[in-house]
Design a binder for these strands. Structure first.
Lengths: 251, 251
DNA sequence: ACCCGAATGTCAGCCTGATGACATAATCGA
DNA sequence: TCGATTATGTCATCAGGCTGACATTCGGGT
């Protein structure tokens, strides 16, 4: 259901080799990683030409915790610094809709996740703000570069199609998970979705904002699950102890 | 936010001309209509070759009210009758997740809407059941035909990309609309989204299932809105009287 | 014209989650 | 090492939605 989650490991291998001095090789290596993250390769393998084309347009950017990659309501053409396609290389980015107390977390981007392409394709402003949760390294693709990749490289367009399809399926799954389910079921679902290697590294405040409930309500359920031995609750961390039981609760 | 809604009119014009006896011309006309429904033409106009290719693979199917186009959990390869891409030509189809009392309506397909392609692209089973609300005419595209269209016609692939992007944007918008908003705001949003020419032709039971609330809760809010002159409530119909006020309530 | 199924309108009681508040504990930076 | 900040844990109160039930109204079919 969250295939991109499993792509964090290959990336770690890649960066381990990035010590080499050759900048061009580094760009190519990044492009190869992007090629692995965007869509499925089943019916459209990318050629060396495709990968090097991607490398041509990629730039790397760093963000401090709390910094915004892009902001709610930003038109695609208005801020060339932020508009365009973002591909998360390391760290996580929370997508926030609404301001202040009414803020809700639409999604959390993990390494390998892609965003901003939909807004580019539809020429619409961002409906949410992207805020770095930790130190974040992200790859950026400007609007015209993206257009050129799609136009001149059919295999890339084909792969991007399944990438967006993946996200649509996940998004619909999220809607199903939100409609008419008990709070416990919703929370279990989110914990399973958001866990990386059995741990959810998010403060309860953020998890609560992902489900659209108040923090005390979330805390009550979490402590109950902890008493039942299903999870462990720490400071900024929730540990999955019995994933099967949790999946059963999310049913 | 729901661009496909405005495509119902062109279709009606098209069928008005469909009286002609030539089957091949009818197929081409259907294909041209599909070309108008799938994605935006901005950067990828479809050639005559593209359109006739679409016509090659299209078949037309009729469904009675209550009949299922496809069923929850159905694998893409299992039932060639139902797997594949569906394009609604007339009538509406509700997408239901969950069974019996716990059923919730993920979405309602209107004429011009497309579905089933995501499941094909990701080789996954349908996560919901498609059930005809009225008499439905739908165009069907089998798996291999769809693959061939995408593989051999870059312009079609490009258009399909923005079609799925549209749906992803709408889906995310729905999530934002569900998180942490008052019942009144959620209901106003759904009424605005689902209205065709100022009318929502759905029983309250269905509208309630779209938001994941019980029918009495919905009815209470509806009667309140009616007292305030914002909407009119009829038998199986909700009429928008003051769309602006409704939009303000949905904010 | 009549009947039947389906949809709407409404209610009282219960239960869940929201609110706002407070105390405690962990982390981070100076 | 020591605040300052942020996170967790918990509570009493209250509003809002659920539940199950019932009466009423509408529409289509015979």
């Amino acid at each position: 259901m969250a295939p991109s989650r499993f792509l964090t490991l290959p990336w770690q291998q890649v960066t381990a080799e990035t010590a080499g001095p050759d900048a061009e090789m580094a760009a190519l290596r990044q492009a190869a990683w992007v090629a692995r993250c965007v869509g499925r390769g089943a019916s459209a393998p990318l050629s060396a030409t495709d990968v090097s084309a991607i490398a041509t347009y990629l730039t790397t950017r760093q963000f401090e915790p709390g910094q915004k990659l892009f902001a709610d309501g930003m038109a695609p053409g208005a801020e060339p610094e932020s508009a365009g396609v973002w591909i998360i290389r390391s760290g996580r980015v929370e997508l926030i809709a609404g301001a202040g107390e009414r803020r809700s977390v639409v999604h959390v981007l993990h390494p390998g996740d892609v965003d901003g392409d939909v807004q580019l394709l539809l020429d619409m402003p961002f409906p949410y703000t992207g805020r770095a949760l930790e130190e974040v390294t992200a790859l950026h693709l400007e609007a015209d570069g993206f257009e050129r990749l799609l136009g001149h490289h059919p295999a890339i367009a084909r792969r991007w199609l399944s990438s967006i399809a993946e996200r649509l399926a996940m998004s619909q799954n999220r809607i199903i998970g939100l409609l008419g389910r008990s709070l416990t079921a919703q929370i279990s679902q989110v914990l399973l979705d958001e866990a990386v290697q059995g741990e959810v590294l998010l403060p309860q405040r953020t998890v609560a904002a992902m489900i659209g409930v108040q923090r005390p309500s979330l805390n009550k359920v979490l402590k109950d699950l902890e008493r039942r031995g299903v999870i462990g609750v720490g400071y900024g961390v929730i540990t999955l102890r019995d994933a099967e039981a949790l999946a059963e609760l999310a049913r």
